[in-house]
Design a protein around this nucleic acid. Structure first.
Lengths: 152, 152
DNA sequence: AGTTTATTGCAAGTAATTCGCATTTAGATT
DNA sequence: AATCTAAATGCGAATTACTTGCAATAAACT
């Protein structure tokens, strides 16, 4: 394949998607590249069903769910809790960001720069039974401007 | 119908449980007092099924789920994402605390004192589409000491 | 090209949550 | 205390979310 220019964080090109999989010991199948492609080009967390919809053609759920598990175990994606009754996922982003979620309409906005990482050590020091923190999840639930206009 | 969250101090005795419900415009039935009782005396987040188990007698799921929704809408309980495939809930606690969750065995430890609240304003300032934050969720996922001993 | 092994697709299975509706009950009203 | 009414319950069925077993397929290594 052609050598691709160096990309900014998390702008995975096709080659990099392959590498991502290989590094994780995962085979790079057409489906998998397509799934990662969808996630890459969507800027908000996706549910498995949403991924299937975006893939266009009918796609087997089991395949998605199994793949998601592997991605998650390898830290390639992370799980986001939007408080719908199903999980959402997004590509792991080194620029740690979190989400503002509207409790009425579900609108999502990214918020960036939250120095939780700095708190890790303090938390570990105070923890009795834990020796390692691998990830965290931080979501803010509120009311978006639009919903704020219309009385509840 | 559903109202705005009401955050009441959490020093519940039986009488206060009644008041809690009344303030929320909810009828104080025997079942409801029992459910709140279970949540009060358990120090970790519970799933609807766990609540049913603890209630002893056979208990209708629909009743629990419906009640939980109302409690949540009123800010009496909050939802915790332990990344099992179902939601967990705990009584809302003004002493804001969060959870360390073991990614292997699911063990939970509380961590307290995380000054996220102070970040609310900063976050709102930087937010484009949000005018109000009502709650947040912060969970840390890691490996507990016990699981840390045994190699993965 | 051939072999190995991970991955897929399908169909069935389980778990989690919701809904509709007839019945009951808490709490306000008389 | 008896009555009234809206809210809550119980039940069964429905829906949604996710998982599993297994035979067929395709990636990656030789």
């Amino acid at each position: 394949m052609d050598r691709m220019p160096i990309q900014v964080k998390n702008t995975f090109n096709p080659v990099e998607l392959r590498g991502l999989l290989r590094t994780g010991g995962l085979k790079a199948t057409r489906s998998r590249l397509a799934i990662l492609g969808v996630m890459r080009r969507t800027k908000h967390p996706l549910s498995p069903q949403e991924i299937i919809e975006r893939l266009g053609k009918s796609f087997d759920q089991a395949t998605i769910y199994r793949f998601i598990k592997k991605l998650q175990a390898r830290g390639i994606i992370r799980q986001i809790d939007l408080r719908h009754n199903h999980a959402h996922y997004e590509l792991f982003d080194l620029n740690d960001h979190h989400h503002l979620i509207c409790m009425r309409c579900g609108r999502i906005e990214d918020v960036s720069g939250c120095e939780i990482e700095d708190a890790y050590n303090a938390i570990l020091r105070s923890a009795k039974d834990f020796s390692e923190i691998r990830q965290h999840s931080l979501e803010f639930y509120g009311i978006c401007r639009n919903c704020g206009k219309h009385k509840a």
